[in-house]
Nucleic acid binder design. Structure first.
Lengths: 244, 244
DNA sequence: TAGTGGTCTAGACCACGAG
DNA sequence: TCGTGGTCTAGACCACTAG
């Protein structure tokens, strides 16, 4: 590549460069964890100045799509345990401890999507989906009952994996096995009463208050690819949110 | 002012400029809503280049402390209704409507802080605080029972205001009447059962699940200046959180 | 028309990491 | 020692706003 197709009246150059880089990550030209070419090199490739590339990379870094390391270079962001913990897991113990919960799988099923699910995932009605149920524990205590629904088309064979092979960090699996990068999510929180199933799994009384978290997770292109419903026992934990 | 005291080995210049600007806003040199001098002018005043001032202002804009308008200039951020709604109010109706709730004051009292309150607010034990209780409604339905606790020292006379004079948007009052700018908050969410008081105020059954939101709000310097505990009926609403 | 922030470029030097 | 991103500067042009 040697020239940026600059279109008069279109988005700023750095923004076009940014989208180009996202496109290339999406297409697999660079994978999560890979070192990107230097700013200078990218500028030569795209036919723009190094400063413009820098602005594009800064914007990507602000969205956690790349990680910059002085002296080393710029890397495509990967769903490391750290990223999972500090960006995609918001349950903190009351004493302030932040740690990744362990997972106990309760089952995987393949079925047809409910109307609401296909709508939220942008699927044809009654498209095939895979559901994973698991209970997640912190310090040995079961705290979260979690149901995950994903399109079977995007994650084929996910239900064929042995239960034991399902990692704690699913987003890493999505990334490595299915080349799907989760880059953004929207969560809706409510308070509900524990269902008999939740009560049994979490060791609480039926009807006791649980924190409900409904998450829709999106890939690099902003397409929803996962629904996740969590019911949390917030006796000893809470959900943390920072506002600016 | 004509020269930036650059200290060798210290923080980057633009970061020092940023802190200087925060300092001047904090001291009232510029008030919320005011137009800042142009980048060029600030650069002359501080003895740095316009590009360095720009980086400082960009950082301030990222934290919502200033607002930039092409062609007009850079303004000190104010707690307008819009900012309250889109940055400090996260309850959305299930149909996706986002609107500011109306408030019905239930009382203001002056008392001594509980141990937990003085700890969270960084006060001497048993320091004087003012508590405001109110019920907030969306589309005529009472949805949120809210208790606000602030240090009497920071907001003197707040309890002397006629109840009717308490505005819906308290942060605007803090800003205009007490020169306290809320710039950041941390929220902890849990699910609880409705107390008799909450049940009466919100028109739900005692013990029914409510969304609890405990917020600590900080001023420009990062000092906590307000505690706010909200109990929300999430039958028809939810708390929205965006993750990147 | 004048002034502002937004974009783009170019070049210099520094701090960091790796060999 | 070398290459990287981080900082800082300087100047050009554009898009928007207001008078």
């Amino acid at each position: 590549m040697n020239e940026m197709k600059t279109i008069r009246g279109s988005a700023p150059l750095y923004s076009q460069v940014k989208e180009l880089i996202i496109q290339q990550i999406y297409q697999g030209a660079w994978s999560p964890g890979d070192l990107l070419p230097s700013e200078t090199r990218l500028g030569q490739d795209y036919g723009v100045s190094q400063g413009t590339v820098r602005k594009a990379l800064d914007a990507l870094a602000a969205e956690n799509l790349v990680i910059r390391h002085q002296g080393k270079g710029t890397f495509v962001a990967a769903h490391t345990p750290d990223r999972a913990l500090f960006h995609f897991f918001h349950i903190i113990s009351k004493s302030g401890v932040r740690q990744m919960p362990s997972s106990q799988e309760k089952g995987i099923t393949r079925r047809r999507a409910l109307r609401e699910e296909s709508q939220k995932l942008g699927l044809q009605s009654a498209a095939r989906v895979i559901q994973i149920d698991r209970v997640r524990s912190l310090e040995g205590e079961p705290v979260i009952a979690e149901s995950i629904v994903v399109p079977a088309k995007v994650f084929p064979d996910l239900d064929k994996l042995p239960l034991e092979d399902l990692p704690n960090n699913l987003y890493q699996l999505y990334e490595e096995r299915y080349c799907v990068t989760i880059s953004r999510a929207v969560e809706h929180l409510r308070a509900i009463g524990a269902s008999p199933q939740d009560a049994a799994w979490l060791g609480v009384k039926k009807g006791s208050p649980l924190q409900l978290i409904e998450r829709v997770a999106h890939n690099l292109k902003g397409v929803p690819v996962e629904l996740r419903v969590s019911r949390c026992n917030t006796e000893n934990h809470y959900y943390e949110s920072i506002i600016v």
